[in-house]
Amino acid sequence: MVLGIMKTVILLLTFAALALCADDFCYKDTQRACSPTSSKLVTGVPNCNAKYGAIDKLQSSLQKYTNELLYRSFDFLLMSTFYGNYIKNRPGFEKLYRTYSDSLWNDGIELIKYIETRGGTMDFSNIPNNILNLENDGSESKPSPKPNWELNEYTSLAKALDLEKELAEDIFKIHLDADSLKPGQHDAEVVHHIEEEFVSKHRDAIRKLSGYTYDLGKLLDTPDASLAVYMFDEFLQNDKY
C-alpha cells in the first residue's frame, strides 16, 4: 500500500519534472490541474504563459533600454527646465526638449507594456552603465564626470543629437541580437516591434536635430549672433520648423 503511493508520487514527480523542461505543456498543466488525483500536488499551470521565441534571452536588454528611455526623458526634462528660467528665457528650446522628454517617457511606458505582452517582467533596477554615468573601461567601472544639462543653445542641440543617436544605436544592438539567426536567440516578433516602434522615430529626431545644429551654427557665424539665437528660438516655437 505505502509502496504503491510512493510509486505514484515518484511517477507524478517525474512527470511534473518532464513537463517543466518541455516547452509546450500548458495543455498537460491544465489536464493535471483538472485531474482529481493530482490537482493538489502541483499548483497552478506554470507552462500557460505568454513566453515564446527568445524573450528570455532579450528581456534583460529590453529592461535596460526601458530604463534608458525613462532616465533620458528626465535628462531632457532638465534641459528643458534650464531654458525655462528667466535668464535663459528661450521658450523655443524649452518646448523642443520638453517634446523629447514627453515622447521618451511615453515610449518607456509602451516598452514596459510590450515586455509584459511577451510574457516578460520589468526590472527597474536593471539600469545600463551609460545611464549610471559609469564608464566601462574593461577593468572596472568608474564614475565619469557629472552630467551637465545647463548648456548653451548650440552645444545643447549637439548634446540632444548625441543622445538621440545613442538611443537609436542602442536599440539597433537589441535588434541585432534578436535578428541573429542563432537558434534560441532569433525572435522575429521583437525585430518587427523594434522596427515598427523605434527605428523611424529616432531617424526623424536625428535628422531634425542635425538640421537645427547646422542652421544655428550658420546663424552664429554672423555679426549679430545674439540676435540670431533669439530668432532661432522664435522659429523653434513654431511647429513648422
Binding site: 535628462d75 532638465l78 527646465t81 534650464f82 528660467n85 545611464i131 554615468n133 557629472k146
Partner: peptide
C-alpha cells in the same frame, strides 16, 4: 532654477 538644474533628478 537659474543654476543647479543638472543634479535635480538623480538615478
Amino acid at each position: 532654477l537659474t543654476s543647479g538644474v543638472s543634479d535635480m533628478i538623480k538615478r
